[in-house]
Every structure is written in C-alpha cells, then in structure tokens.
Design a binder for these strands. Structure first.
Lengths: 363, 363
DNA sequence: TTGAAAGCGGTACCAA
DNA sequence: TTGGTACCGCTTTCAA
C-alpha cells in the first residue's frame, strides 16, 4: 500500500452514489428505514471503494468509555501482584479507547470474593476480570452479570460451566504432566514420589493431580505415587503434613508441590538434611526460591506466568468489548519450566518486584 | 473511578484558567510564542485537573497514518511464518491508530536482506521490523534509516551496535545454558556430548555455544564437549557432519542441535539405530518433530516462540511510534522447553499452521 | 503573546 | 425513506 493512501470514508461512498452520508451510515449499521436496494448499493460500493471506518472518528463521536473491574485476591501476593501488573500494562498500552479500570482486592480466594461479585450491580461494568473460587458457588453471580451484559473473564482459575466469556490460566493438567515427566527423567532408579497440593475440590489442583498421576504411570513407571497430600494453602498444615509424609516415607525420592505453598515443605526438608537429596519440583516463582534454585537445591519450578495471564486476560476482554470478537472458550498458557540455568530470565522480574514492594513499604 | 467520570480535556484546562484552548495547546506542546508564566500555569492546572489528551480526537485531527514495513526471510518457514502471524495478530488488534503495514520477504538470511534494507528511501516508513543478517554489513543501512527518523526494530536476531531502537529475540546464551543443564540432568553417567550449530559468526549461534559450554562445565562436569560442528544451515552439510561426528565418536551420549536444522541429524541417528539412545535436544518446533517428541525419541526441543517474538516486536514498535516510549535496549524472551508431556500445548499451533499451509497449497 | 474558528470522519437528531 | 447538520476534542491557521 502506498504511504498515505488512505482508505475510502463514508463521504466517498456517499458521493460515489450521489446520496447523503446519513443514508450510508444507516445502511452500514443496519438501521431501520433504508430501502433494501439502497442498502445493497451502499454495501457494494463500500466494498468496491474499500471502505474502512475511521475508528478515531467513531470513538470521538461516540465518546464511549469502557468500564472494567479487576477483582483479585491479595493472597498469594507473589502471584497476583504480577498478574495485576500484567493487567495494568495491557490497560496502559491502549490508545483510542478510553477505559476506566476499577481495581479491587479481597483477602483470599474463598474469602470475600463471592460477596464482591455479588455486590456488582447489573450493567455497572462493561467487563470484569476476576478469579473464581469455588465454581459452583460463584456461578449464579457470574451468570447474572453475564446476562446483564457484563463480559466476565476468569483469570488464574476457571468456572468452565458458567457463562463467563473467556478464561485465562495455565494448563493445569499439562503442569502436572510436566512435573511427572521431569521427576521421571531426573530420578532414574525405582522409587516413590509425593505430591503436595492445596485442596482437591479446586479445579486447578485436581487437574494437576490428574496430569501428574496419569503421566507418572505413562512416562515414569519406575516411580510410584504416594497418596496425595492436601495442605489447604496453609503453612501450618504444610509443615505438619510434610513431617508426617517424611516420617512415614523416609525414602521418598521426589516431591511435587503443585501450589505456591512450597516454603514450609522446603523448610522441613532442610531440617531433615534432605534438601538437595530429594528432588523437589515447585510451582510459581518468588524471591525465596531464587537462592534455592541457584544452589541446585530445587530441581525446577513451574512458573505460571502471572504477568502474561493478566495481560492476556485484559487483551481478550478488550478485544471482545471493542470488536465483539468472541474469544476461545478457554485460553491455556504453557507454564515455563524454570531451572537454574534459565532462572536469570525470570529472576530479574521477581527481584525487581520484591525490591519495589520493599520500597513501597518504606525500606 | 466513577463510571463515566471522564478526565479533563483541553477545554476544561482553558476554562479553569480563563484562557483560550489554543494557548493551552501551545503550552502543552512547547510551541513557541507562549509566555513562560502562562505555560507554567497551564501545566500546573493540567496536572491538577488530571488532564489526559483524547487520543481519538488527536488522531482524527492529525489524520496521521503510521507506515510500517515488515521484512522477513522465507526460510526458515516453520519459524518465520508464525513470527509473521504474531506481527499480523498484533497489528490487527490495534484500534485508534491507522496503520499501513507492508509485508515483504526475501529468500533467506544473507540473501537479499541487505538489498531490501538498502532499497528503503529515507523517511518512507515510520518503522521497520526486520531480521538482521551479518550485523557488520547491515549496520550502515540500519543507521541511515534510523537517522532519517525510521524506527528500526530487530527481531529473531540482533545488530546490537547499530542504531536500531529495539530488538526482540530469544535469549541465546540462556538457551545454550538450558541445553547444557537438561543434558546434564538426563545423562547421569560420564560421557561426551556434541553441539551442532549453524555458523559461529552469527551472533545468536555463538551465544548459544557460549552458554552451552560454560554451563556444561559448571552444571554437568561429568560431560565433556566435543568440538562444535557448523552445519551452515544446510541439510547436506548436516548429514555429512553428523555421519562424521558419529564415526569419530560412536560413544556420544547427547547432541544439542542449536538451530532448526535438526532433521538431517535425526535421520542419521535413525539410520544408525541410535535414535532414542543418544539424548537429542533440538531447537524450534515443526510438524516433523511432533511424532519424535511423542515417541520419546527426542529429549526435548527449545521452542523459540516465534509468534510471541513477532507480536512483541510489533507492540514495542507501535508503543514507540505512538507514545515515544523508549523501549529496553533489547528484549530477550525465555525459550519454552517442550517435552513430550507439554507438547500438546504447542503442537496444536504448529499442526494447524501446517494444515493451513497445506490448504493454501490446494491440498 | 493570545484568541477565534475551521475541520478531521463519523453518529444521531430533526426535518422533509 | 432520505437529507441536512451539530457535535465529539484536538490541532492549526489567521487575525488581533
């Protein structure tokens, strides 16, 4: 295309047909009161002249402002803070559409999330980005908002049977499968491995177990899986459960911690001088893990790319709101496997985040 | 922020100060002929009222069209086709800025690229996305265009000492390091490993070697590295060199192919019944690799995320052109390690691409 | 040094 | 069913 050769506008189409721009506009937008024949001629001419609406003009005239809510848990901070950054980054990079974003937080998944969703009046927002807790409980609120015309986008977790318009998360099944393969390749003699998760009624956690168990059987038949441990995302529980696990199975060769709650597990291993001997696979990346990865005490961690999740969720929502592009039913990102060697590529982001947080606290 | 509460416009600032909008505009844009005191008052008031220019209005008035060139090699198709997709996807998702994109291809890196760059007149494009071949040779053209006001963005490779404004690629050093760590963890007895690359005067290839060698020494001292093999991206060469390699080192335990030119290597291994016995680590992902990964014949492949590279390059360029945001000197993406277990997350994209290509050829 | 006003390309209201 | 036109917020020309 030649530089500056701009596509035809509504006037060009009107002039070419000797009619008014008002009629052309009506024809384009299927508004009532246009002779079908006229409409057909307009559309044909538009095609011929390669008509492309000037979005700047449209947006200026309509002066529509999009209103988007982003409701996320405070906990787990190391995950949701960068996720929010991703949303902000995507929101900040938008030109030509005016957007109000309301950010709000609640203590943790399952605590305050439902109340917040339920408090949103019909039609208050054009879109909402949120992390569903128990799908069954949040579905009514999601469906009500969705039916009232609010585009609901799940991030980090999903409520697949609700009427949300899109969901962005890491592929949990594949995360579990990857964990199985990595442990299987690293532990080459016969042995047992354990999995420590949050709670199995959380879809994400159940999927990880499914992926882990299935692929352990398939790809690492020399490893047998101990009964799964649920730590309920509590540090206390994780400590207790891990001690228990090690007492009953002192020979465990590998542990897969499928949530961010890995520090208590690592602490127990350290106490028992097992750190570096038992192969540990973690989930997510935060400051405390960095030295452990650098020192080779942890095999790897499955980084769930919170920044990318937030950015993607916002992009999908915006695209839907502006152009009514129906997104995929679910977007499943690939987790990054972070070993010692590729850690520098991820550590910078985590560290600068930790530093920024420290500065914000006045350090 | 309340719904619909829109930020202050130029009029609001003018009214608040009792002056005309023309003066306010002049103050904002540092145009000559404004009393410095007036200017200061305007800026202060803008701050206070939280003035945000309406980009739709600006863009409508200025009626600027951005003109962007995307010049990429035809070869290696499996890499550059999705990269181009990424660019298109990013370009297609822009509202509020009118953009002309000129896509053009040349046979392969080092063949026609320089001529194409040199053929661009000063000022013809606002920005160019391209893959530099030999940095030393392309620098003059890059610098000339850059100085003429064309924002030059390198993708897939880099010319770090040129005056390009940004570069997006996979971190080559880390790719090599990752390869070393993966082979080191998988091959647990003493042995030798080989690396097959393109040509060492290509920066990307040299960096991968650096990362591989350094981290092999550091993380896998039980593995020794054979002299590196340069296949010059030719299938013939790769066949010949691999046969040679295996003849001289029948005991080789692992091979790292650091370019997409892995099929000839795999063919030789197959011939000699070594596939599945020698641990092979590949680079990039294309249809032929899928069954080999699924069958466990290849340890893994380092996926260089061409789609993400293209998308990122376009986003960075656009952000610079629209908002004059100076990008990072270089953006280095993390390669994805694709094993058998997480392959499904990547294979879909590759397969649908291959299918689309087949359809385009009339199959 | 400052102000008034035209106009970018659509949309939507009112009139015919 | 169609046409005329005001207006969105900003840039820019011309006049004061």
């Amino acid at each position: 295309m030649e530089k500056g050769k701009k596509p035809a506008g509504i006037k060009d189409v009107a002039r070419a047909l000797g009619i008014s721009i008002a009629t052309v506009d009506r024809a384009f937008h299927d508004r009532p009161g246009v002779n079908p024949k006229t409409r057909a001629r307009v559309l044909a001419m538009a095609q011929k002249l390669n008509y492309r609406p000037n979005l700047a003009a449209r947006s200026l005239k309509l002066n529509r402002r999009l209103s988007i809510a982003v409701y996320l848990p405070e906990q787990i901070h190391s995950f949701f803070a960068p996720l929010l950054e991703g949303v902000r980054s995507a929101a900040g990079g938008v030109f030509g559409v005016e957007i109000d974003v309301e950010y709000r937080t609640y203590p943790r998944i399952g605590e305050g999330d439902l109340a917040l969703l339920e408090s949103i009046p019909d039609g208050r927002f054009d879109g909402v980005i949120f992390t569903p807790g128990d799908p069954a409980k949040s579905e009514p609120a999601i469906n009500r908002l969705s039916r009232s015309g609010t585009a609901m986008v799940c991030v980090a977790s999903d409520a697949p049977h609700s009427e949300r318009i899109a969901a962005v998360s890491v592929d949990a099944y594949v995360s579990g499968a990857l964990a199985a393969e990595l442990l299987g390749r690293t532990i080459q003699r016969n042995g047992t491995v354990a999995m420590i998760t949050g709670e199995l009624h959380v879809l994400d956690h159940a999927e990880k177990l499914r992926g882990f168990a299935a692929n352990l059987a398939l790809l690492a038949p020399h490893l047998s899986l101990l009964p799964v441990v649920e730590s309920h995302e509590s540090a206390q529980e994780a400590l207790r459960q891990t001690r228990n696990l090690l007492k009953r199975n002192p020979e465990v060769a590998g542990i897969y911690v499928s949530t961010a709650n890995s520090l208590p597990v690592l602490r127990v291993l350290e106490e028992q001088q097992l750190l570096g001997k038992v192969q540990v696979l973690c989930t997510d990346l935060f400051a405390e893990l960095i030295p452990l990865l650098e020192g080779g005490r942890i095999l790897a961690t499955l980084y769930q790319r919170p920044f990318a999740q937030g950015k993607t969720a916002f992009e999908i929502l915006l695209r839907y709101l502006v152009e009514r592009v129906r997104p995929e039913h679910a977007t499943r990102l690939a987790p990054h496997t972070v070993f010692r060697s590729n850690l520098p590529l991820f550590a910078d982001r985590v560290r600068s985040k930790a530093r920024a947080a420290a500065e914000a606290r006045g350090v």
